[in-house]
Design a binder for these strands. Structure first.
Lengths: 341, 341
DNA sequence: ATGAAAGCGCTAACAA
DNA sequence: TTGTTAGCGCTTTCAT
């Protein structure tokens, strides 16, 4: 006896279908996988049987048999700062949506990025690293396991891994250039967590743009934060109290920019009369409030899309396929928070 | 020949370990699953072999063999309003953390809750429904499949399913009672999306508390929204323009309450001098800004914890185990946004 | 175009 | 305490 009869309550399996359709399980397999040739008549019979039995193939059996997994793990740092950002949320949403479209299962892994967390990737077919803050070794580990990997929101040029990042440098420059074009010279920068590549590049862009515009750098105009609203608040207060306060500020994230606006209002300042502000993200929250925030739009959704697409490609390609490094452009969105000097 | 020799590059399997350790695969299985009795000497040999080969059992083979899956699907509506809330984010984080602790794999499913989306649950061992807005049928479906289910953030009493919800009614009442105790009589309510059970119950609590305090209901004082900041803004503006404006308002979410504060400031009003505000959530954002928000704390983390725990119980119990209905208490957190009248 | 049969890697009776 | 063996449900040669 090769097959045991199952009790009727059990889940339907491929040979229940085969029996009902009067064909072999091989034929059923061909039909559900759309491979090989099956006579139209038989295909129909199988389809009917599948429908009648409400048959769903066991993914475990499939994966065991094929040795392939279509589970994608999305690794996100559990850190407060990062996790609660507009960025993380948008990313989860976009990735979730895209994975569904690609018929991939999305496994969510919140990582502690503690020194040597074993990073359990059993059964995972591919990994998306959302940024890599202190988790480089995890990428290396996954790569060593021969797992298809894509790093998102971080341009990695010293590792053989596909990545899709945002042109933070260019975005920051266009923000500052815009301010300069409006006549501003005293431009401050409230930066994010500079251990983050995004914040680092935005700061770098700010610096470069100043230099290119021959504006002397005022070290005091650079306020570093951890991206939190709390620190943004402190930075803003510092800003407004300066003996020679800036006329404009480029803020590394919209949520921080909104905090700057709030502080300004509390201090009786007027935006943009007293201070011009450019944010970064194009967070929809920037639209509320009395004055809409001018910002740099970053294509988060596009980034997730490219990431999932690339991972999908890698997962279906044979090992050793060339990796891709993608940088997505940003876009200045002019609204109401800046004025001509 | 029962087993094929594999090429050395292939992943190690249980009989590579068995061979190296000089025991049968059964013994290896016993060791890695910590079941049955194995002589200490053999156990050691197996462990060594496992380590040397870096062996990791195939979860697909395990699941196929045992018929069990430890994959938990978390279903979250993709809706903007719900998805971008503090609630959803906190929930994802908490669930992710808890699942990791329980060694469960967390599959993220963003649902459209479109009429009949097939809800692909193949290979899933249990489901957590985060709220059920127009997705009751999905719960019923999953239940029908005999899948362990837990509904979170929604008290479901007409379905044989475990659920863990928050005492929204009680929370709302304590908010209003607090306001009344401060001497307020003209109390408005900015409600959330009332198709949501949470918003519905908060509104109900508001109504009940008024009645219990013998305060006549002013229909105009109830402003319904979809939880978005945009609608909160509109509602606030309406509020401030009333011929007889309220002296206090109970807002169904902290993020909306913050919007009320922002609008107040823009209109030159002072909080709490001109208006007392109580929110709901205990969203950390409520701590920023010049006046800290008084609010109702809801134990989101606890809710996720109870949810995962319960699901885990269900997944390890035999079918037909009694379900549990849990309601978690809320807590009034007095800060600075209310004043005595 | 179709089917028989050999695995995929593991667990769990059942024997020994 | 240990090993033998029959599956779990599916894919995939290889014949037919």
């Amino acid at each position: 006896m090769t097959r045991t009869k199952k009790s009727p309550s059990k889940n339907k399996s491929i040979d229940d279908v085969a029996r009902l359709a009067g064909v072999s399980i091989t034929t059923v397999s061909r039909v559900i996988n759309k491979v090989g040739a099956v006579k139209e008549k038989n295909r129909a019979k199988v389809m009917d049987a599948v429908k009648e039995l409400k048959f769903e193939p066991s993914i475990f059996a499939q994966r065991l048999a094929t040795g392939k997994s279509n589970v994608v793990a999305l690794l996100i740092p559990r850190y407060e700062g990062v996790f609660y950002s507009f960025y993380a949320l948008e990313l989860i949403r976009a990735t979730g949506t895209l994975c569904e479209a690609f018929k991939l299962d999305l496994l969510l892994h919140l990582t502690d990025s503690r020194p040597k967390s074993g990073l359990n990737l059993r059964g995972v077919g591919g990994v998306i690293f959302s940024d890599i803050i202190g988790t480089r070794y995890q990428v290396e580990e996954a790569l060593k396991m021969g797992l298809p990997c894509v790093v998102i929101n971080n341009y990695v040029d010293d590792l053989p891994v596909s990545c899709v990042a945002i042109d933070n440098l260019g975005g920051a420059k266009s923000a500052v250039n815009y301010l300069v074009s409006l006549g501003h010279k005293r431009i401050a920068h409230i930066s994010g967590d500079v251990t983050t590549q995004a914040a680092e590049k935005r700061l770098e862009g700010y610096l470069e743009a100043l230099k290119e515009n021959r504006i002397a750098l005022n070290e005091g105009y650079i306020l570093k934060t951890d991206y939190s609203r709390g620190q943004a608040r402190q930075a803003s207060e510092k800003l407004f109290r300066m003996p020679e306060p800036p006329t404009a500020v480029f803020v590394a994230s919209d949520s921080m920019a909104l905090e700057v606006m709030a502080v300004a209002r509390e201090l009786g300042k007027n935006i943009p009369a007293d201070l011009s502000i450019v944010g970064f993200d194009d967070n929809p929250s920037g639209l509320y409030g009395p004055v809409a925030l001018t910002t740099i739009r970053q294509p988060l959704l596009k980034m997730a899309e490219e990431g999932v697409k690339e991972l999908n490609r890698l997962m279906n390609a044979k090992k050793g396929t060339a990796v891709k490094k993608i940088t997505l452009p940003t876009e200045l969105v002019v609204r109401e928070s800046c004025r001509t000097l």
